[in-house]
Structures are given as structure tokens and as C-alpha cells.
Design a protein around this nucleic acid. Structure first.
Lengths: 191, 191
DNA sequence: GGATATAGTATCGAGTAAAAACTATCTTGA
DNA sequence: TCAAGATAGTTTTTACTCGATACTATATCC
């Protein structure tokens, strides 16, 4: 029964966000999914900024995602850059305009007002609760966690203190370890 | 900044639920919104089971909702009954088939598995956190709370112990006070 | 070096959602 | 009391989402 209540709440919250997102994107002619893609790309690292990564993130089909990206490209909110090593693959980079638009629209005025209504400890609780639920859902869906490198089991530090990814065998900058990676794996033992 | 993280989490959760809902409804040819309408109607009271109430709940336009309802009616998951007093108004009643379908599909297997992963206290925390966030969002959107009569300021008890709504001036059964009402108002002081 | 896997695109069809125009009924106020 | 306006709901049109399917191009694996 408890589960039913949680489901109901998540459904309600989901609908409210969709409404908010739809309204926020409206004046720029952007759909909820398009905003979501922009937000994802703004925080994804260089191994995770491809159409296929977006596809996995959204859980949609690649054809659908391809369409969405085409629209965003046409609106000049992102550009496609060929991968130098793998010529099948393209990287999606937000344009300055795209980055700016995203910062303007999200979070929306309404969402910010809603958060103002919360105390600091409420925000902390809510953040933790959401993260916990998302993790369980991802696990149940056999979906990847899309966490940032800093929290990944593959991330290590060299004796000079630099970050190094053991999966792709590459050094990562202080900036990069804060970005989302499609290969992210929680440390063993955690969930 | 905290706010940005919350927004991101809600967006992610929202996308995951949508995916779940889409998958769950797929084999019955039902869309996420349609499931949402069915779920709402299954827990709404006799003042809140009209197309207009659904419209308010979803935050969509009445034309859109009218389309959705038409589909559900055609699938024989609900029937429309004329209001006896106000002939403009119709009540939406789930058919046995509709009720059964809803119970079968929602929450989905995947969602249930995700919840199994949570401890009792985690569930409690998550439920509370979601409720808190939803309330703030509704407030910021100037939307109604859609709570159950039992928690409404208009709900009172007569000296015989029966429930009575001071807004619509009607007695309510023990069953009815557990249903959602579109006129729901939190007691004064609470948010 | 040929089979297979992977990244991505193009097209089509079913469905969502808003906007605007419409009907029917109810309420209100001069 | 009856005309004006408010309310409940439908229909039509248009733009967009998303999945399915079929397609091209490149990479990988025996």
C-alpha cells in the first residue's frame, strides 16, 4: 500500500514538472524533452555527449532522439562535431546560445518560488529522498546511473593527485570529474 | 545551487516514471496520460469526477482532456453519466474493466521492484519528501491541492460522529472522506 | 576480408496537446 | 424576467512526440 502512495506522489510530481517545463519552454518554442536534452548535454562529459548516450539516458529509441536532436540543431542550440577516432560517432556540443537559453529557462520562475518555500533541511531531505528513489528505479530498470566521475568506482587519483579513469584509461581534469558519464558505476557495495 | 540539483532530480525521476508508465501501458495500448486519468478517477469523489476537474488536476486545456476521455470511453474503461442537477455536467465513472486494468498495470512490476529495494524508513522519508515538494509546487503554481476530504478544512464531524462537508453542505461516508476532492483546502496555517 | 555489431538518419503512423470556435446549460443582475 | 455573461463540454486544426522499420556508414571480430 505504501508503494501505491509513493507511485501516486511520483506521478503527480512528474505531471507538475512536465507542466512547468512545457510552460517554461513555450515562449522559446521548446518542448519538455528538448529542454531535458539540453540540460543533460550541459553536464555530460566527452564520453557521454553522443546521440547514443542521450538515447540511453532518456530510455527512448535512437530514431526518436535523432529527431529531437535535429530540431535542436536547426534552432542552433547545439552543433554536431565528428569524433576524430570513430567516424560513426558524433559529439553534441551546446552553442553559446543554447547554454544561455538553458540557464535562463531552467529552473523556471515557478519552480524557484516553490523551492523558496522550503527550509534548508527540507531541501536536504528532499534531495536525498529523490536521489535514493532514482537509484532504485534505475536499478530496477537495469539502466545506467549516469553519475559524475567523482563518484565512480573507475575514478582514481594518481600519486600526483590528478584524477584518472581506469575504464577509459585517461586523465581527467578537476572540471571533468564533476560531469556526468554514461559509464558511471557506483562503488561496490553501494546499492 | 541546491535548487538546481533538486530540479535535476525531479526531472530525472519524472522521465523515469514516464518511461515506466509508457512501457506499462504499451501492451494495453494506453498512454501515460490516460493511465493518469484512470488513476485520478479511481480515487476522486463525486464532486471531482468531471472532465473539468480532470482538466484542473492535469493543468491541461479542456479540449485536450476531452480528447483523452473520448479515447478511454471508446476503450470502455470509463462511462459518462449525466449530472442530475446540472445538465451541463457529466460524471466519469470507471467501468469494472477500467478498475481492473488499472490495478493490474499500476504500479508496474518495475516500480514495485524498485520499492522492494527500499527500507521501511526510506519509504517513509521518500513519501514525506515527495508530499512536501508537491505541496510547494502546487502553491507556486496556484493550483489546487487535490487532497482527501479527511484532511480538509471544510470537513467536520457532527455530534453523532458522522463526517460533514461545510462547503457543499453534505454528509460524507467513512469511505468518501478518503477520496480526493477538487475543492480540498488544507487547514489554515498549514502551508 | 567477410560477417556482424554499432552509430546514426529517414520515413511513416498513431497519438498528445494547445488554440480557437462552437453548442448547451446555468446564473446573475438590471 | 430575460438578456448578458459564465460555465461545462465537444470538435477541428495544427504542431509536435515517439516507436517501428528500413536504411547508410563505419568499426570490430574471427
Amino acid at each position: 500500500m505504501n508503494t501505491n502512495i509513493i507511485y501516486g506522489h511520483v506521478e503527480r510530481l512528474s505531471e507538475l514538472l512536465r507542466l512547468d517545463s512545457r510552460t517554461a519552454g513555450l515562449e522559446y518554442g521548446l518542448q519538455p524533452v528538448q529542454l531535458e536534452v539540453l540540460r543533460y548535454l550541459s553536464v555530460s562529459n566527452r564520453f557521454s555527449d553522443t546521440p547514443m548516450a542521450v538515447t540511453e539516458y532518456l530510455g527512448q529509441t535512437k530514431g526518436t532522439v535523432s529527431q529531437t536532436l535535429k530540431v535542436l540543431e536547426k534552432k542552433e542550440l547545439l552543433v554536431k562535431k565528428n569524433d576524430e577516432k570513430d567516424r560513426r560517432s558524433t559529439h553534441l556540443v551546446l552553442t553559446e546560445q543554447g547554454q544561455k537559453l538553458l540557464e535562463e529557462i531552467i529552473p523556471s520562475e515557478v519552480f524557484l518560488n516553490a523551492c523558496k518555500d522550503l527550509t534548508g533541511s527540507e531541501r536536504k531531505d528532499i534531495t536525498a529522498a529523490l536521489a535514493r528513489l532514482i537509484l532504485s528505479l534505475l536499478k530496477a530498470n537495469n539502466m545506467k546511473t549516469f553519475g559524475v566521475c567523482k563518484t565512480c568506482r573507475y575514478n582514481t587519483r594518481t600519486n600526483t593527485g590528478d584524477y584518472y579513469c581506469n575504464l577509459v584509461k585517461t586523465a581527467l581534469s578537476d572540471y571533468e570529474v564533476e560531469l556526468i558519464c554514461r559509464e558511471h558505476q557506483a562503488p561496490e557495495g553501494e546499492v
